[in-house]
Structure formats: C-alpha cells, structure tokens
C-alpha cells in the first residue's frame, strides 16, 4: 500500500460539495414511518420529555442518509460498491435544526485492487458537531 497526494481529479485536501438539510419533526416522523423505527424518543414528545434529551431527537441514521447524499454525489460508484463508513454520533439533532454535511479527502492510497480515497466527514448543527467519522471509497481500479 502506498500513499499518494493526488490521483487523476482527486487530491488530498479536496472538499466534497456540502449540503445543508433542515430537519423538522415532520421529516423525523416520515423517516420513522419509512424505516419502521418508531422509538418514542424520536416521535413522542411526551415520552421524550422524560429522557435525558428533554425533547424528541432525529434518528442518527437519518443524519447518515444526508451523508449518503453527499457521498453519492461525490463518487456514486465508489460509495455504493465497496464504500466503508465509520462514524460516531456525538450529539442529537433536534427538530428545527439545520444539518450541514461536510467532507474532505485526507488520504489517497494505492492498494492491490485499486486506488482509494479516505474522506473525513462531519455533520454540524450550527457549530455543534453531531456526527464525525470517515469513509473510504475506491476512486479507480
């Protein structure tokens, strides 16, 4: 395995195109319906009041759906066919929050079966980091 600074149109330090998505309770409810994950922490304000958070929070995996949108736009083939995602959920997303998803290539490596880029990922609600991690995607055979 050898490390590269750039490969074709990919360079260490490149920023992925960001997206910002407002998350309202209606979106959380729709995600609960689509995913079947009806944990009351997400959809029942009365139950959520009794929890550490004090109000409903979005599913962490809804936030990852926004990450997937960014990665699909950046490199569909590498993301959908072999992409490796590794993230931690660091804070809640509340109804009304705007989630900004950003990413930056921090490593390009040559492996036996191709060239891979690793991107550092972060999701923010204002300045608060709610998801952090990285993804590794193939960028060339």
């Amino acid at each position: 395995m050898s490390e590269l600074k750039s490969y074709q149109n990919y360079n260490v330090g490149d920023q992925l195109d960001e997206i910002t998505q407002v998350v309202e309770q209606t979106m959380i409810d729709a995600y609960a319906d689509a995913s079947g994950d009806v944990n009351p922490l997400h959809i029942d304000p009365e139950f959520a009041k009794t929890t550490f958070f004090g109000r409903t929070i979005a599913h962490g995996l809804l936030t990852l759906a926004f990450v997937s949108r960014v990665l699909s736009a950046w490199n569909w083939q590498g993301w959908a066919y072999g992409g490796e995602l590794n993230v931690s959920f660091l804070g809640p997303v509340y109804p009304g929050d705007s989630v900004r998803v950003s990413g930056e290539i921090d490593e390009i490596v040559e492996r036996d079966d191709g060239i891979y880029a690793r991107c550092q990922l972060a999701c923010f609600c204002d300045e608060r980091v709610v998801v952090k991690g990285f993804v590794i995607c193939k960028i060339s055979n």
Partner: peptide, 23 residues
C-alpha cells in the same frame, strides 16, 4: 434496524456508533 428490532431493548436507547461496508 428492521432485523434488530425483532429483539428490541428498552425504550430510549440510542445509537452511538455505526460502521457499514456496502458491498
């Protein structure tokens, strides 16, 4: 999650980390 929901934990559990490899 649909599969894991066939054996759920108590209400109020939350997701801390996630890794996926999409073949």
């Amino acid at each position: 999650i649909d599969a894991l929901r066939t054996r759920v934990g108590p209400p109020g559990g939350i997701h801390a980390k996630q890794q996926f490899k999409f073949h």
